[in-house]
């Protein structure tokens, strides 16, 4: 095995896994937010991510550096999220569990197909023109990846501080705990929901913009990101930010390893395999709680 013969290779895989995992964690945090606060399971999560990526990439082709595309993607996606909330999510939020799931499933199809019509099915990367450094001899580290990792951290921190300190953040947390009580206390829950959903879209947009710089995007990659977000949130539970971060980074590393060991064509299967493992693990936990029968 190469990994045993050249241990330094592990460093490469580990680092790359952590870099990409940070963006997974970011998108998953957004999902945890809408899931926890609004009880909406957003199947279009990954498509929001890819959409953010395309915004950054397209701006790049227009001569705007993708790093500047990042804030633009955040703003555009925030507005887009608001629009989607007003047209679709608001109407399904009170309905049963599956309604939001199926509605966002339809939304996922629309976004993916529109991106395909506009930009074609090719795989794209936004060029950021940063240097690639060599460390420890053979390990290569692209500066953009490090930068993206740091930006992920900053963005996550910003969201956390926002949720803790700002008036809106407090309203969101109050609504998450008990929407009825929040409404009685004079919180405009509709606005809170709109804001939460838009915030999620913005977070996805940021994650996508970063992914477009450090990895590749394609119109139909959205579903993998949705599944990744579900894996992470299911494993970590919502409202557990450290858990989401650890699960996100862990997923990134595991995917990288399996991609290397088994071959790249198994990468998606790995994600799904992990999803099933996480779901089975949940089931075993529930069995302990006398929740499931066989």
């Amino acid at each position: 095995m190469v990994l045993v013969a050249a241990p330094v290779f592990n460093v490469q895989l580990l680092l790359d896994g952590l870099f990409i995992g940070a963006t997974f964690a970011l998108a998953a945090y957004g999902l945890a937010l809408v899931w926890g606060v609004m009880n909406v399971k957003n199947l279009a999560q990954g498509d929001f991510v890819i959409m953010g990526g395309y915004i950054a990439w397209w701006l790049g082709t227009q001569g705007i550096h993708p790093l500047w595309g990042l804030p633009i993607a955040i703003v555009v996606m925030f507005a887009f999220g608001w629009g989607i909330y007003v047209t679709i999510i608001r109407r399904v939020i009170d309905k049963d569990l599956f309604t939001s799931l199926l509605a966002t499933f339809g939304l996922a199809i629309v976004i993916a197909q529109l991106l395909n019509l506009m930009f074609g099915p090719e795989v794209q990367t936004a060029e950021s023109d940063f240097a690639i450094r060599q460390i420890l001899g053979v390990v290569t580290v692209a500066e953009i990846k490090v930068l993206a990792f740091v930006l992920c951290g900053i963005l996550a921190l910003a969201v956390v501080i926002f949720m803790k300190k700002s008036r809106m953040g407090q309203a969101i947390r109050a609504t998450a705990q008990d929407p009825r009580a929040a409404r009685v206390m004079g919180i405009d829950t509709d606005k809170v929901y709109a804001f939460t959903f838009s915030l999620n879209a913005a977070i996805c947009g940021a994650a996508g913009a970063l992914i477009s710089m450090i990895w590749v995007i394609q119109p139909f990659y959205g579903i993998s990101y949705s599944i990744r977000s579900f894996v992470i949130v299911t494993a970590a539970g919502f409202g557990n930010l450290p858990g989401v971060i650890m699960a996100g980074l862990g997923l990134g590393v595991m995917e990288n390893y399996s991609g290397f060991v088994l071959g790249a064509e198994f990468q998606q299967a790995t994600v799904v395999g992990l999803l099933l493992l996480v779901l089975i693990w949940r089931q075993v936990q529930q069995r302990k709680l006398r929740q499931v029968v066989s």
Partner: peptide
Amino acid sequence: GLRGPYFAIGTLGMAI
């Protein structure tokens, strides 16, 4: 054992 969204996303993942 998976109810609701877990079932939908789990089966979707399986098919892919």
